[in-house]
C-alpha cells in the first residue's frame, strides 16, 4: 500500500495530508491522555506498535505472483481505537519512508490515511458491531483484521485511481477504469495475506487475554465475564 515518493501529484498529496493531520492530532491527544491516566497500558501499547512493526516488514508472496505485506494495525485498532492506531502507523511509515525508501514523505498523508486511519477504523467498527451480536471473540478479531487489511489496499487503489484516472480527466468512468487496474494489482494480491494476518492477530490476542485480560476490561474491549469465559475455555 505504500505509494512511492513523488507518485501523487498536486492537489492529491495535500488533500490526503489535510485528511490525515486532524486524525493524527486527535490520536496524539488521545494517546497522551491514555498514557497519563493508565500507566499500566504502556507495555500493551508497545506490543501493539511492535506488532505493526513486525507484520509490515514481512513481504509475503501471494498467489498472483506479486508480494505484498500485511499492515498489522488490526490489534491496535481493536485495543486502542483508530485514532491512536493512526499515530502508531505514522511512526512505522516514517521509518520505512526515511530508511527504506518505501513510501515517501510527500505521500505520507495518503499512506497514513489508508494504513493508519481507514483500515483501522473499519477494524474497530466491525469489532464493535460484531461484539454487540456476541460473535465469538477470536472469529471477530480474525474478520475485523482481515477486512481492515484488505480495505487498506482498496483505499490505496482509490487514492491512485483518483490521482491517475484513465484518459487524464477525472470522470466517473476514468476513475472506475483506473480503480479496476490498481485494485487488480493490490486487492487481489492482498486476499491471502489478509487471511493470514487475521489469523495471526487472533492468536496474539489470545495470548493478551491469557496474560493481561484485566487490561482488556479496562480498555472496554471485553467485559470481565467475557475475559473469564475465554480464559476458562479449553481453547
Amino acid at each position: 500500500m505504500h505509494i512511492f515518493e513523488g507518485f501523487l501529484p498536486s492537489p492529491w498529496w495535500q488533500l490526503w495530508f489535510a485528511f490525515s493531520i486532524p486524525v493524527i492530532l486527535f490520536g496524539m491527544y488521545r494517546l497522551n491522555r491514555l498514557v497519563s491516566e493508565r500507566r499500566e497500558i504502556v507495555p500493551l501499547l508497545a506490543v501493539a506498535g511492535a506488532f505493526i512493526f513486525v507484520l509490515s516488514s514481512l513481504k509475503l508472496p501471494s498467489v498472483t505472483g506479486s508480494s505484498s505485506h500485511p499492515t498489522g494495525t488490526g490489534m491496535a485498532a481493536v485495543l486502542f481505537g483508530p485514532a491512536i492506531t493512526s499515530v502508531l502507523g505514522l511512526i512505522v511509515l516514517i521509518y520505512q519512508a526515511l530508511f527504506l525508501s518505501h513510501g515517501g514523505i510527500s505521500t505520507l498523508g495518503a499512506n497514513v490515511a489508508s494504513m493508519g486511519i481507514v483500515g483501522p477504523f473499519v477494524a474497530y467498527a466491525f469489532y464493535k458491531a460484531a461484539s454487540k451480536v456476541n460473535m465469538n471473540f477470536y472469529l471477530n478479531i480474525f474478520l475485523a483484521t482481515a477486512i481492515a487489511d484488505w480495505v487498506t489496499y482498496v483505499v490505496t487503489s482509490t487514492q491512485l485511481a483518483l490521482a491517475f484516472p484513465a484518459g487524464g480527466a477525472l470522470t466517473v468512468s476514468g476513475f472506475l477504469s483506473s480503480f479496476t487496474a490498481f485494485a487488480a494489482v493490490f486487492a487481489t494480491t492482498q486476499v491471502p495475506l489478509a487471511i493470514m494476518e487475521g489469523a495471526l492477530t487472533a492468536l496474539i490476542m489470545k495470548y493478551v487475554v491469557q496474560v493481561k485480560g484485566d487490561v482488556l476490561v479496562n480498555l472496554q474491549v471485553l467485559t470481565s465475564e467475557a475475559v473469564n469465559k475465554l480464559k476458562g475455555a479449553v481453547g
Binding site: 501471494s62 506479486s66 518505501h102 491512485l160 491517475f164 494489482v185 494480491t189
Partner: peptide
C-alpha cells in the same frame, strides 16, 4: 515471476495510464 512488490507493480499501472 520473481514475486516483486505490488507497490512496484502499481508504478507500472501508473505509467500505463499516464
Amino acid at each position: 515471476s520473481e514475486f516483486g512488490g505490488a507497490d512496484g507493480a502499481a508504478e507500472d499501472v501508473i505509467s500505463g495510464i499516464d
